[in-house]
Design a protein around this nucleic acid. Structure first.
Lengths: 170, 170
DNA sequence: CTTGGAATGTCAACAACACTGACATAAGCT
DNA sequence: AGCTTATGTCAGTGTTGTTGACATTCCAAG
């Protein structure tokens, strides 16, 4: 049973047997790694009144300044009530600015204030430091594979959002 | 700024520049991929009165039958109160059996009942199906890289738990 | 044998983050 | 004018996590 072949794939000269065991290792690796991935920002945020949701909002506003609430909603994949709670506190605390749209006045365009940028930097630095260590330790070929597999694991809409962000950022 | 070199690594003929931009792409890939990773089991669980925490408990009990509560606590990285709430409902619902230890009667050894195994199968099948698709699509070399990077991203204790599970399962 | 500590379980309170449903407002579109 | 879209808000609920306090059981060391 431990050696049941659940699938196989060809690639050049190598044969990969996708046994349940190998898939399970991938699943567990994903679980443990994600904990590490969020650990550093979580530590920083726990000192403030903020959580992971604030981090995500700040990250993507920094990534795409002037983004609308609706756009952010699609990227984050949460309800507007959930996002709004987070945005409200960030705006109240002067980390995010919400400007009424010029062409469409219903829309709110979101920007980080200097304070918001400072927080984003602090959080990103911590998360990037770990990512950098992992990338260095693993090497460039592993990094390429890492990204290939992650992309293949995304839902279609997520992959679209991801590549759109990726290409805009270049 | 977009091309600031935050680090570089050699590997054969390839040069990888760890720019902030590349690291950010890795971060976003991780974020979006994890959503896909948990999406299928979450859908199944939302119909029941269970959540992701139940999935994790059931997964690791299945992975290491007879594990103690304390051991599970270390793997999952939550408080005993949090785990206990989850375990209690699973035991009440007849999915998990808790047996008093023979050598140390303070310890409780956890096992899945047939019903518990059925749920585990259902959840694992969904999650493995996605992992299998991603692995197939990405190819064996990418899979190796994927795992290498994930391992490098774990905290030390998590890496230990991961390799222990990995080696025991072979 | 007594005492200390470890493993476990339980109760209560609370916070973060998600959800649904309902409703309000303003603005754009036909 | 009427429908739709974008946003915000209120109220309620659920899952998952936290702390703190306390009880029980049992091993092990003095």
């Amino acid at each position: 049973m431990a050696d049941r072949r659940a699938g196989a794939a060809h690639s050049g000269e190598t044969l990969l047997f996708l046994t349940d065991e190998q898939l399970r290792q991938g699943i567990e690796a994903m679980f443990f790694a994600y904990r590490g991935f969020t650990a550093d920002p979580d530590r920083i945020l726990s000192d403030m009144a903020y959580g992971r949701a604030h981090h995500r909002a700040v990250h993507f506003i920094n990534r795409a300044p002037g983004t609308t609430v609706n756009n952010l909603l699609n990227i984050l994949g949460v309800t507007k009530q959930s996002l709004n709670r987070v945005l409200r506190t960030l705006i109240e605390d002067g980390l995010v600015e919400s400007r009424v749209g010029k062409v469409d006045k219903r829309e709110r365009h979101l920007f980080l204030t200097p304070d918001g940028e400072a927080l984003e930097q602090k959080l990103s630095d911590a998360q990037r430091a770990r990512m950098r260590m992992a990338f260095r330790e693993a090497g460039p070929e592993a990094v390429a594979g890492f990204r290939t597999v992650l992309e293949a694991m995304m839902d279609r809409e997520m992959r679209y959002a991801y590549t759109r962000l990726k290409d805009s950022g270049l």
